[in-house]
Design a protein around this nucleic acid. Structure first.
Lengths: 184, 184
DNA sequence: CCCAAAATCACCCATTCGGATGACGCGCCC
DNA sequence: GGGCGCGTCATCCGAATGGGTGATTTTGGG
């Protein structure tokens, strides 16, 4: 834009100034762009006023200092207004729309024991433990060795849990136990 | 979110001169909008000043009215600036943060038989069938009745599959079979 | 402290299961 | 035709399992 370089008083303060001191913020880019536009605006304003001034001179306007004063005030307050507007809307700019997208994750689907069912069937902790070991494929003897009891005890426990599950074989007990979410 | 949503209110007939550049990005769009508004602003400013000038002449404002004039200009331009600032930041307010939250979804994960493992273990279809029925909790006799063979045949099949799996008990065979994805 | 539930152990008996072995028939392929 | 894989069936035997009964000890709560 051609400026009236001849008129020193019209050198807009924004022209040489406006040091690009950009505050570090997430919207630094937007602010930079805006600053650019404030400059542009000032420039246009200056040209406009210059035009008016020229017209004023052409028409022998008495006092032109009022226009300069007004233009300066206008420019300054416009900048202030923009800045204020940005200030005021800053919190609003943090408005974000949270979109929750459900993503299918290959989850091992960790086991959750159905304690209610365990309770309703009257299965004791020990019996459940034995059932788990049966499901692991251990024999009564191995289970007895692992939990430090006699094989007879293991048999008793398993018999009881079979009874409570209505199972006649250990494989059936395992199947039912898994189905009823008593064991993993 | 349609990016031109913020643009719609600014569709002004004043600035057709602006080449309809294809908005490559949001920043380009913001700049375009801003240019429009700077032009509009300048126009309004010019009109305002002209109006004030007219008023000034009409009412023969004295020297003291300069303050009033300045204040008016300041107030008006400050308001304009605020309005402009708000307008300009509107696109920023549309900033949308997409938060992808991974949600564990119960995935049924239907069973897929590991045929390679079946083949590598040399397990025949019949043996696999028997293994499945064993896993279902059936006794050899029940299996025999279901597949219409003698119990001895079932025993042979199960013995073979136990051998191939390295299992010593049917519960262990079931456990291994599930672990190796041979059966559901 | 007492009681009931739970856990422990034992014995007996019948059934089931697992291992080993042998045999027969059928379809397939070299 | 002979070999091979697969499915079928059988017999014997020992081990494991399931069912029933009874008993003792431990434990937790009223």
């Amino acid at each position: 834009m051609p400026s009236n370089a001849g008129r020193a008083p019209f050198a807009m303060p924004v022209d040489d100034g406006a040091p690009p001191k950009i505050p570090r913020s997430d919207s630094a880019l937007v602010e930079l762009a805006m600053r650019k536009h404030v400059l542009l605006y000032g420039l246009i304003g200056g040209v406009l006023i210059a035009g008016l001034k020229f017209i004023e001179y052409r028409w022998l306007v008495v006092d032109h200092s009022v226009e300069i004063y007004g233009a300066l005030v206008a420019a300054v307050f416009a900048g202030l207004g923009i800045w204020l507007g940005l200030r005021l809307t800053r919190p609003a700019r943090h408005t974000e729309t949270v979109v929750v997208r459900e993503v299918r994750v290959e989850a091992p689907v960790e086991f959750v024991r159905d304690r209610d069912k365990v309770a309703s069937l009257g299965i004791t902790p020990r019996e459940l433990e034995i059932l788990e070991l049966i499901a692991a494929g251990l024999s009564n003897k191995e289970i007895a060795a692992r939990v430090f009891v006699s094989e007879n005890t293991v048999k008793t426990h398993s018999s009881r849990v079979f009874d409570k599950l209505g199972a006649r074989r250990r494989t059936q007990a395992v199947q039912l136990g898994k189905e009823l979410r008593l064991i993993p």
